[in-house]
Amino acid sequence: MVTLSLRWPRAPFILLILLLSACSANHTPAPVKTVGKYQKQTYGQLSQSVYQVKKGDTLFAIAWRAGRDYKDIAAYNRIKPPYTIFVGQKLKIPPAKYNASGTGSTSVKNQVESKKQAKQVKNTADHKNSKIQQKKLEQPKRKEYAEKNNNKNATTDVAANKITQWRWPTDGKIVARFSTAELGNKGIDIAGKRNQPVKASADGKVVYAGSALRGYGKLIIIKHNDDYLSAYAHNDKLLVKEQQTVKVGQLIAEMGSTGTTDVRLHFEIRYRGKSVDPLRFLPKK
Score class of each variant (00 low, 15 high):
Val50Asp: 13
Glu182Arg: 14
Leu183Arg: 12
Gln244Glu: 15
Tyr51Val: 10
Gly104Leu: 00
Phe267Leu: 10
Lys148Thr: 11
Phe60Pro: 02
Ala253Asn: 06
Pro283Ile: 03
Gln48Ser: 15
Gln165Pro: 10
Ala231Val: 06
Thr261Leu: 12
Val175Cys: 05
Pro278Ile: 12
Thr34Tyr: 14
Ala25Ser: 15
Gly259Ser: 07
Pro94Thr: 04
Pro197Gln: 08
Gln139Tyr: 15
Lys223Asp: 07
Tyr51Leu: 11
Gly184His: 06
Gly44Pro: 02
Lys247Ala: 09
Ala231Thr: 11
Val53Gln: 10
Leu213Ala: 06
Gly187His: 00
Lys152Asp: 15
Gln117Asn: 12
Ala61Tyr: 03
Thr261Pro: 09
Thr170Cys: 11
Thr261Val: 11
Asp236Trp: 04
Ser275Lys: 09
Pro31Tyr: 09
Gly88Ser: 03
Thr170Val: 11
Thr155Phe: 02
Lys33Arg: 10
Phe281Gly: 10
Gln45Thr: 14
Val50Thr: 15
Pro31Ile: 11
Phe281His: 05
Cys23Ala: 14
Val175Thr: 15
Leu16Gln: 09
Tyr43Thr: 13
Thr164His: 14
Met255Ser: 00
Lys54Ser: 10
Lys241Ser: 14
Phe178Ser: 05
Met1Leu: 09
Gly44Asn: 06
Phe13Ala: 15
Asn77Ile: 00
Ile62Gly: 02
Ile62Asn: 01
Thr84Leu: 03
Lys116Tyr: 10
Asn153Thr: 07
Gly249Thr: 01
Ser201Glu: 10
Asn151Ser: 12
Ile252Val: 03
Thr156Ile: 13
Gly192Tyr: 00
Ser5Pro: 04
Arg65Ser: 12
Asn150Leu: 11
